[in-house]
Design a protein around this nucleic acid. Structure first.
Lengths: 352, 352
DNA sequence: TACTTGCAGTCTCATGTCGAGAGTGCTAGC
DNA sequence: GCTAGCACTCTCGACATGAGACTGCAAGTA
């Protein structure tokens, strides 16, 4: 990306802000009037032609105003934007809401997503906190019939898995309980590998081995941070955005709606997240068609990890049209990640 | 509802079927042509006027065909419709899919909802199985700091609750573990009331009392079958329906879309369910504005309970436009409830 | 009496036309 | 290097128009 003159930057910044605000192509005249530029609209037009040359903006048609391209948004986010921090009042309000549910862990995620959705009028997505490495906290085995049993697993991060077991020899509940008491002690706080290692003490056809290997398998599966269920909140907000309810020919628009809904419902944004979050920490901005996934080409994501690296944590973020209030979105996502961090470290202890 | 002549019934049945199929007002001529009626379109028109008189159908405007009213659908569902059972092939396919996830209990709900959504091209909603009465299976208490701890509860139906505890006196993990071992034995398989009763043995300021009363409280809360999270699947399918993507003036339509999405996202259908499911068992059909809730006035629900009465179970069903394939929807919902029943009784044992 | 044929009347909807408005690019001039 | 002025282009809403789709009714028929 070649450097832009001071004036071009100023104009681009104004244009993106204006477009984010109004959702209509921006005219040169408007820029001069609303943003107090000190040169005439004709000059601005000249500069706009330059920006268009550089693929930062485009015209929907001759004699229309200009609209930022994905590249334009990227430049804006990277060099021109400023993060608009949450006001103290907003912060207080949020803190208060969390204070009210501080004892109910299952409400944290719901509330976080809901706050993001409300603050940004867009869709929020979020995973429940969980650790990278599954560790067993406790399990129970319940006899169902002579040859089948029901295994319930509680992991250290609070996740629960249930699984059916098919026994090789008939066993009563009492025997199962005895086995599970012994193994619970043995496997407590162990990871998949550790459980696996302990298995060598048992005969492959023993119940102990069956239970143990099933547990190891489940713990292992638990590793993938993206294999998880996403909470969604505020999907309706998306429909309020003009690109999905007013702008452009009717037919295209309902196509857009269908697409974005599909992305949301089926978690299609997942592969995109996967490829971006590996790289770095902090808040990530993924703009429209920057990635190869076609379905995502007119939505942007602002996402972040929360939790400590290598320990318990998850993902959170918002999805909206490329015309998104990036400055505010980034601030909100960053703030909510921090809130979750605090809640979690309070829960699991600071050190260790 | 006054009785209808044989001929009126025949015409109404044809009209509803045709409208469900085409989603356009149905002309008298069409009915004669497509449904092999043995009298002329003029006669049909005469009868249609009668049906309109009875509020079973209406005309969007003079010189348009007829459309069923909610009352018309109700009459259709009650007297004219026949349930169209699933083909053997479909049944086999479904069974096969469940066979593949038979060991992963958490997949059952997802799959059931997904099958319903796919088979009916509409949105499916469903709750996870749970018992009416919460019973404790196991709990753990983890020390966080000297004065706070983390309580994890596993209920008999597999639900897990987490909660923070604020201790009145500083305690170490070892002490907490000792307490929880003792109480686990004592509270095992107990209900809220039973736990409450056992509490009288402990001093109100003791840890035992704190833990016990928290547990009792959580078990109690668990009672409400509608306080639960709903799985949603196939919400996009709704958007494909012509009433949400083609029919009527653009503005009304997007209003409809917004409304139905809101109903779905915020579980607004819940109060309606509550009032209907209390009454009876079996598959329930709730048509549009039959209930007082305005938001629901252009969608229909087809829902059922699954699981045994008074034991573990939940709700499942589909939501779609009033123009719904009731016959098929009822059959599918009934079938899927049965599938869940079988899975559950296999898991928890038939008798008891 | 029970039904049908034929037809005038009504409403929708797709299509086409038109003018106002909005913005641009270019050019001549400061 | 910047600006004012202007011709040109494109969109969009308003309006008119005609074809098509159905109905309701009246007159005719078994």
């Amino acid at each position: 990306m070649t450097a832009l003159s001071q004036r071009k930057q100023q104009i681009l910044r104004a244009l993106v802000q204006e477009y984010i605000h109004t959702a209509t192509p921006v005219a040169s005249e408007t820029l001069v009037r609303k943003y107090g530029l000190r040169f005439s609209s004709a000059t601005v037009r000249h500069e706009l032609a330059g920006l268009e040359e550089a693929s930062l903006i485009y015209q929907p048609h001759t004699s229309a105003g200009r609209v930022p391209t994905d590249l334009g948004y990227r430049y804006f986010v990277e060099y021109l934007m400023e993060e608009s921090a949450l006001s103290l009042d907003e912060q207080r309000l949020i803190r208060h809401q969390f204070y009210q549910v501080q004892d109910q862990l299952d409400q944290w995620v719901r509330l976080t997503a809901s706050v993001m959705a409300r603050l940004l009028h867009s869709a929020a997505v979020m995973t429940s906190p969980r650790s990278d490495e599954g560790r067993l906290k406790h399990f129970e085995v319940l006899s169902v019939s002579e040859l089948s049993a029901h295994l319930v697993l509680v992991l250290r991060d609070g996740t629960v898995k249930q699984q059916r077991l098919l026994l090789e020899a008939p066993l009563q509940q009492a025997e199962l309980s005895a086995v599970s008491t012994r193994l619970n002690e043995l496997f407590h706080d162990k990871s998949a590998n550790e459980v696996d290692a302990l298995l060598s003490n048992y005969d492959t056809s023993s119940v102990e081995h069956l239970v143990g290997s099933t547990i190891a398998h489940i713990l292992e599966q638990h590793g993938d941070p993206l294999g998880d269920v996403f909470y969604r909140e505020g999907v309706v907000n998306i429909l309020e955005q003009p690109e999905y309810s007013r702008m452009g020919p009717e037919e295209e628009r309902s196509e857009r709606v269908r697409k974005v809904m599909e992305v949301l419902e089926q978690n299609r944004f997942l592969p995109v997240l996967a490829s971006h979050l590996r790289e770095s920490d902090g808040v990530q901005v993924i703009i429209g068609g920057e990635n190869e996934w076609d379905e995502m080409k007119d939505v942007s994501l602002v996402v972040a990890r929360y939790g400590q690296e290598g320990k318990i944590g998850g993902l959170l973020g918002v999805i909206g049209p490329t015309r998104m209030q990036y400055g505010r979105a980034i601030a909100v996502v960053r703030y909510m990640a921090q809130v979750m961090n605090e809640l979690l470290s309070e829960l699991y202890g600071y050190e260790e």
